[in-house]
Design a protein around this nucleic acid. Sequence first.
DNA 1: GAAGTATAGTTAGCTATGCTAACTAATTTC
DNA 2: GAAATTAGTTAGCATAGCTAACTATACTTC
Lengths: 156, 156
Amino acid sequence: MTKSSLKPSPREKLSPEVLALADHLHSATIHLLRRLRKQDACSGEGPARLSALSVLVFGGPKTLGELAATEQVKAPTMSRIVAGLARGRLIEIALDADDARRMQIRASAKGERLLQAARQRRMASLAGQLHRLPMKEFAKLQQAAEVLSRLLVDWR
Amino acid sequence: MTKSSLKPSPREKLSPEVLALADHLHSATIHLLRRLRKQDACSGEGPARLSALSVLVFGGPKTLGELAATEQVKAPTMSRIVAGLARGRLIEIALDADDARRMQIRASAKGERLLQAARQRRMASLAGQLHRLPMKEFAKLQQAAEVLSRLLVDWR
DNA sequence: GAAGTATAGTTAGCTATGCTAACTAATTTC
DNA sequence: GAAATTAGTTAGCATAGCTAACTATACTTC
């Protein structure tokens, strides 16, 4: 770091330091998710379906378009993901009373159970590793997770 | 945190705190990579090929089996990825002198250029966001990146 | 050195996930 | 009420993951 500013004033543009952090963060997140992804295999559903289902479980009912936007995917892609989830009885689809074009999609009880089980496996895997960290490093990750969340919210 | 230990002694097993961090980290990394992934579209190559190519560029020549192991993918999958990269002249393949079954795969000059350009786009995107962070938060991410790297190395 | 086993990669064929283009149907706007 | 917009589907393409079954080379064992 060449200059310090404790208030939200940005640093100079794309210094080597910023690029180095971008690189490390990029690499670490890729490898972290690659490890966790393996835990999902035994759920019987692919990553896109699990992710969409988790949006429904934690975010409540959504239309197809809202789901597509949340998952940053085009409508036809989400259409097929929803079809797959419906085929497995993991979601329930109701027509919107106000607008017959819209569909209200919600997780079914079965979908909720499946997602919680999958989530449990991922969390157990990651938590099992975090668990082995010394307190100090654990705290660093806690702070970083908050920073990352804000970064994503403020992304532009 | 219920107990503190500044030395590498692990905490109690899978406390709510550990699970909460696992959850936040999981969510943040997923959404971070989803954003960065978009930058790769204009490279003309998919994520699996870019990732394998980056292994070759930064890790030097590899056999197909080594590439598959590094990318945590089965041999037939890597076989097709390599075929795609070869079709685009992004890699060069030589037969191993000692063992005619093996292939030595290396990035071509064209592959190196393409990967560096793609990497530049990802890094610019992420760095552009990191750039806007106040110094203090930036430093937190730096520390976290180190912790994450160690976590991945020590993963078991 | 021949037979059997192990290893490196390929091929075929399945599923899942992403896209665009072109479509249907419902709603809104003018 | 005609035109434009919006929600979602269908068709068709490419990438990426897998297993099973194959070829070809290398190693082992007698």
